[in-house]
Amino acid sequence: MIPVSRPYLPQREKLDAYLDGIYARNRLSNDGPLVQELTRRLSSFLGVEHLLLVANGTLALQVAYRALGVSTEAGKSEPNAITTPLTFVATASSLKWEGVDPVFGDVDAETWCLDPDSIAPRVTQDTRAVVPVHLFGNACDVEAIDTVARDYGLRVIYDGAHAFGVRYRGESLLSRGDASAVSFHATKAFHTVEGGAIVFRHKADLEQARSLINFGQTAPDRIEAVGLNAKMSEFHAAMGLCVLDELEHCLAPRREAWHAYEAELGGWARMQRRSSSVENNSYVYFPVAFADEAQMHAVKNALERAEIQARRYFYPALDRIPDLNPVRPPSARAGDLASRMLCLPMGQDRSETEYVLEILRGMSRSMRMQATGDD
């Protein structure tokens, strides 16, 4: 089976050298030297300040909400945050875990990211933040979102799980907003097996978050906040350092597959329109929207028969899940896109990509024949 995403494994010898150092120092966690080194190297590689490594991308979101005052507080009304329904469930479930009600806007029909025009009509006196998603590494309309947020006094926390390394107008896309949360899960091009990071706009918010991920402790004998354990371990940092060294080698097959799919599918399926201000691609997933749900299922089933895994990222749209959206009407555009969207395999070698393309070409010919009535 060709998986939808194949985790990248770096050279074992390099990883073993880092592990030997961990064994020699006998320090496994609590802001160890490898976590500090990875923090420095990622800050330099991404061109950002105020980066904090954490245990995973979901905790990155939760810590950002709490550090920026979005989470619920005892004795106060339940806050809400406006977000997109076309995303992984953790974007919304992380809000629920922090006592924040997710309020779903709709997406732009072309970019598939949160439509800025859908934010203001949903703002109430309890709204504290906007949580947009740079879906599949495509930049949201950050300027329009910033304008709405300023008008209503809202925090902006980007879910940048797909946006690692993406440049926007000469700067890291992760530098936009009050904070950006990143996932370093094994399915991503850059990963630490499990892990994540938060990039803050202000150093004071970084320092607040730093204490939160260590149980609220600012010193061994001083607790200044109600925190949790969200620290990255030395073992995870070791993997991250190895993958960072080999990132171009990891990205090469993803880039090749992405452009091959784009060339093959451009004539009969719909692609996400990339922001003109985005200078590169994270190559984390290759999403495509077919004409309707029936066509999507036909392609997915044909791939599965050929032992090729494709995934319905992201289905269903989150505003169709009763526990997340019990009363509000669901979105129109996000629900439609989610029903007919499919992500194709990434990270495989050239022969496997060609095999996937062979199946897709067969489906394209079959669908053209059906459309014209030819046998």
Score class of each variant (00 low, 15 high):
Ala163Tyr: 08
Phe164Asn: 04
Pro132Asp: 06
Glu143Met: 11
Glu171Cys: 11
Gly160Pro: 05
Val166Cys: 09
Tyr158Gln: 06
Asp141Ser: 07
Tyr158His: 15
Glu143Arg: 14
Cys140Asn: 11
Val131Met: 08
Arg169Asp: 13
Thr147Tyr: 08
Val133Gln: 00
Leu174Asn: 02
Ala161Thr: 13
Val130Thr: 07
Asp146Gln: 11
Gly137Asp: 00
Ile145Lys: 06
Gly177Asn: 15
Leu154Cys: 12
Ala144Glu: 07
Val148Asp: 06
Ala144Lys: 12
Val148Ile: 14
Ile157Asn: 03
Phe164Met: 11
Gln125Pro: 04
Ala144Asn: 06
Val156Leu: 12
Val166Lys: 01
Ala144Thr: 06
Gly165Val: 09
Leu154Arg: 11
Asn138Tyr: 00
Ala129Val: 08
Val133Tyr: 01
Asp146Ile: 01
Tyr158Cys: 08
Thr124Gln: 11
Glu171Tyr: 11
Leu173Ser: 00
Tyr152Gly: 05
Arg167Gln: 13
Val131Tyr: 07
Val131Trp: 05
Asp141Val: 10
His162Glu: 09
Val130Ile: 15
Phe164Ile: 11
Thr124Arg: 12
Arg128Gln: 06
Gly137Trp: 00
Leu135Glu: 02
Ser175Gly: 15
Arg150Leu: 13
Phe136His: 00
Ser175Ile: 12
Gly170Gln: 08
Asp141Cys: 06
Ala139Arg: 00
Asp151Thr: 15
Phe164Pro: 02
Leu135Asn: 04
Leu135Ile: 14
Ala163Asp: 10
Ile157His: 04
Leu174Thr: 03
Gly160Met: 10
Gln125Leu: 12
Ala139Leu: 01
Asp146Leu: 01
His162Ile: 00
Val130Phe: 06
Val166Gln: 03
Ser175Val: 15
Arg155Gln: 15
Asp126Arg: 11
Arg155Trp: 02
Ala163Gly: 14
Phe136Met: 02
Arg150Met: 14
Ser172Trp: 09
Val156Cys: 09
Ala149Asp: 04
Val131Glu: 04
Gly170Ala: 04
Glu171Lys: 15
Gly170Ile: 06
Ala139Cys: 09
Glu143Thr: 15
Ala139Phe: 00
Val142Ser: 05
Val142Cys: 10
Gly170Leu: 05
Thr147Ile: 13
Asp146Met: 01
Arg150Glu: 15
Gly177Lys: 11
Glu171Val: 14
Asn138Thr: 02
Ile157Val: 15
Phe164Asp: 03
Gly170Pro: 05
Gly153Arg: 10
Arg128Pro: 04
Ile157Thr: 05
Asp141Tyr: 09
Ser172Asp: 10
Ala129Asn: 04
Glu171Ile: 09
Glu143Cys: 12
Glu143His: 14
Val166Arg: 02
Ala139Ser: 14
Gly153Asp: 09
Thr127Asp: 07
Cys140Met: 07
Val131Asn: 05
Arg155Gly: 01
Asn138Cys: 01
Gln125Thr: 13
Ser175Asp: 13
Tyr158Arg: 06
Val166Thr: 12
Gly160Thr: 10
Ala161Lys: 07
